[in-house]
Design a protein around this nucleic acid. Sequence first.
DNA 1: GTATGCTTTCGGC
DNA 2: TTACGGCCGAAAGCATAC
Length: 368
Amino acid sequence: MSKPRDRIIMLFDLDYFYAQVEEIKNPAIRNKPVLVCVYSGRTQNSGVVSTANYIARSYGVRSGMPIVLAKRKLKDIDSVFLPVDHDNYKSASDRVMAILKGHADTLEQVGIDEAYMEVTAKAGGEYARARELAVAAKKEVLEREGLTASIGIGPNKLVAKVAADANKPDGITLVRPEEVLAFLFPLPVDRLMGVGKKTGEKLEAMGVRTIGELAAVSVQRLREEFGDSLGTFLHNASKGMDEEVVHERGDADSISRIATLKEDTRDLGAISAVTDVLCAEVHERLRQRRLSFRAVGVVAIMRDLSIQTRSKTLSEPTDDLAVLRRTTVELIEKLLKESNKYVRRAGVKVSGLVAEKRTQRSLTSFFQ
DNA sequence: GTATGCTTTCGGC
DNA sequence: TTACGGCCGAAAGCATAC
C-alpha cells in the first residue's frame, strides 16, 4: 500500500454571483439592494430570490426566499429586482473557469459559480505558495471580469469548502493540516457539506451543536443513529478527514426542465399541455448535444410543496420526441393515480444519455 | 456476500 | 401569518443476478 501524498486543495467561490454580474452590467445599481429573482409567472410577484447582494442581505434577504417576503423586508428601501439572465451568467462563468484552469493542476467546476482546484503540484506542496496562487487567481478574475471571489485552502475538499465560507466576500482563508481541528471544532455542525436540516436537527436532539461536539461522539454511536454510510462520513468529517478526489467534470448526465403551472390542478390534459412543451425543450437540448436518452423521469411539486417523482428506463436509447412525450404522460398519469394532492409545478428529465447512433430506421418506416 | 441497476429522495447552489 | 424556482449530482433504498 502506497501512502497518498499530502494534497493542497482550494475552493474558489464567486461572491453573490448572479447579482454581482448584474452590478457589472449596470454599475449604477451597486450601492442599492440588488435581488436576482426567478419569477414563476403565476402572479406578479410569485417566485423566489435566487441571489441577493450583501446590501440586500443586510436587510435580511436570503437566497430561496419568496419574492413577496423580500419586498416586505425592503419596504420603502430603494431596491433593484431583476429577473435571472442565465445566458449572461453562463458566459461570465465560462470565462472565469478558463482563467482558473491556468492556476490549477486540476479544476473541478461545481455548479455555475464554484470550482475545486487541486494545486498540490503547482504549489510544490507548500501552503505559502498556494496562497500566492489564490491571490493571483483572484487578481486575474478581478482584472479581467471585475468579479470578486472567496477562496478556501486546505488539505482536502471538505476543509477547503468550509474555509471558503469562513471569510466572505472577497476573502482568502488558509487552513494548514495542523490547524484543521482548531479551525473546525468551534463551528456549527451544519457548516459541513452533507449536514442539512434533517441531519442537523437529529444531531441537535443528541446535544451536538458544534463540529467539536460531533467529534466527541463515538463512530459506533454515529453509525447506530445515522447508518454506516452517513455515520462514518460524519465521524470523518468532524475530524476534517476527506479523501474525495478533485476530478474534471464533463457535461451534465441528465437534462431537465420544470415549470410552475398557472394554477394547481389534477387534470392530466392540463398538465400534459405543459409537459409537452417541456419535452420539446428537453428534446432540443438533446439535439444540440447529439444525444439519445434511455430513461425518462417526471417530477411534480404538489400544492403543499412536497415532491413526487416517477421514472422509467426504456429497453433501448432513443432520440424520439414522441416517445419522450408519451412516456412523460404515462408517468404523470401514474403519479396522479398514486397521490391525491394537487400539482403546482411539473417537470421532465431525461438521463442515461448516450451519443446518438445513426438512427436505424426499420424497413417499414423507410418505405413509408 | 458482492456487484449492479433502477427508482426515489435529499440537498447544494 | 402566509408567502415559494429551476436546475443539478449524490445517496438511499430496494430488487435482481451471480
